[in-house]
Design a binder for these strands. Sequence first.
DNA 1: TTGCGTTATGTTTGGTCAGACATAACGTTC
DNA 2: GAACGTTATGTCTGACCAAACATAACGCAA
Lengths: 125, 125
Amino acid sequence: MTDPIDSTFARLRIRVHFGEALMLGPGKADLLELIGTTGSISAAGRAMSMSYKRAWSLVDEMNHAFQTPLVESARGGPKGGGAHLTDTGQAVLDHYRKLEDITAEAGAARIGAIRDLLKDVSDGK
Amino acid sequence: MTDPIDSTFARLRIRVHFGEALMLGPGKADLLELIGTTGSISAAGRAMSMSYKRAWSLVDEMNHAFQTPLVESARGGPKGGGAHLTDTGQAVLDHYRKLEDITAEAGAARIGAIRDLLKDVSDGK
DNA sequence: TTGCGTTATGTTTGGTCAGACATAACGTTC
DNA sequence: GAACGTTATGTCTGACCAAACATAACGCAA
């Protein structure tokens, strides 16, 4: 809403394809992060308005693609269960976030160059 | 080209969101490139097994988003018509390809770090 | 031992987006 | 002026993927 025109306007989204094994993008990264903060797959899913089923399937996909699971989960218990990031999970998330930062910085000039060729969007509003 | 082993395995795909105005990704870039080489929207579409309708709509979207059209087209004529990249179109394509190179290089280490955590897929070969 | 909120998994329904199909206009060449 | 291959545009259909719905297991707390 109250964003300045430039900074949030051009946004680079990245997705890494590891052959057929896995593709890692913003969705899985956000999910991992939310599982870390909420301690629950379902809570993470709700936070990004994603169905539990889909959230779980993404977690399952990631867990099977890596040597070590990224998310450990437990059923039952006082709060019914829960999930948390493993060290590997945290490492993958950190790497991905850094990757976002690095690529955004490296590409800023080229993105700006393309942006300058676009129609001016800030005039009407 | 003469990339080390992992480069073909882990592939970084980028997509730039310019607010609501436009998003520019591999599909549109490839389409631009093929229009440049084939001189035809329909031929470019066929080359990437994309329907003419879709190819045209992507071109139309890009043409409207930029100050200057990226693709100029003509109907009729000896070969029925055709299309070609404008200077702006070539510039945008060049910027995008460079962006791909720059981000891939900048992110190589982090991508490699994630890749190393994946299950070993290269054992078969 | 009942209740709770979660993980875990199958089945069905539905909305959306892309492709298929149809048609027209166009302008040079023969 | 007939033919051709392309641009340009509308409509319709279908396949796919995600959400919705349903159900079970689990383990601690009270």
